[in-house]
Measured scan of single mutants.
Amino acid sequence: TTVKVNGTKYKFDTPEEAQKFAKKAADKYNLKVVVDGDDLRVE
């Protein structure tokens, strides 16, 4: 599972880890998590 934040992709072994990271990033930058198929985007 990958998470894309500000054009940078981060790869995670499990969707749970990816979800946690995406949520933290979204909170930090005051953005929202967008599900894109198997991957997540923070925008």
Rank of each mutant, 00 (worst) to 15 (best):
A22G: 01
A22D: 01
D27F: 08
V35H: 09
L40S: 02
A22P: 01
P15W: 14
Y29H: 13
D38E: 12
G37P: 02
D39R: 04
Y29N: 08
K20G: 07
E17A: 10
D39F: 12
V42A: 04
F21W: 10
E43T: 11
N30K: 11
R41I: 15
Y29T: 05
D27P: 03
T2N: 06
Y10V: 04
T14N: 09
E17P: 00
A18M: 01
V34H: 06
T14C: 03
Y10S: 01
Q19A: 12
E43L: 09
D36G: 04
L31T: 13
F21I: 02
F21Q: 03
N30C: 14
V35C: 10
N30T: 03
F21L: 02
D39M: 14
V34F: 12
F21V: 02
N6V: 05
Q19S: 08
V5D: 00
Y10R: 03
A18W: 01
K32Y: 10
K24H: 13
F21Y: 04
T8G: 06
T1S: 08
G37M: 05
A25L: 15
A26Q: 04
D27Y: 09
A26N: 02
K20N: 11
R41N: 08
P15F: 15
V34D: 04
D39K: 05
K20H: 10
K9F: 13
D39E: 14
A25G: 02
K24T: 11
A25F: 15
V35K: 11
E16K: 06
T8L: 12
D36F: 07
A18S: 01
V42Q: 02
P15E: 08
K11E: 10
R41K: 11
K4Q: 14
P15G: 04
V42N: 02
K11C: 14
N6D: 06
A25D: 02
D27S: 09
T2C: 13
P15R: 13
Y29K: 05
K28Y: 14
Y29Q: 07
K32P: 07
V3N: 01
R41A: 08
T14D: 08
F12E: 01
V42F: 05
K28H: 12
V33H: 00
D36Q: 06
T2G: 04
Y29S: 06
N30Y: 08
E17V: 03
K20C: 14
Y10C: 09
Q19K: 11
L31E: 05
A22F: 02
Y29G: 07
D27W: 09
V35S: 09
V35W: 14
N6K: 07
E17G: 04
E16L: 09
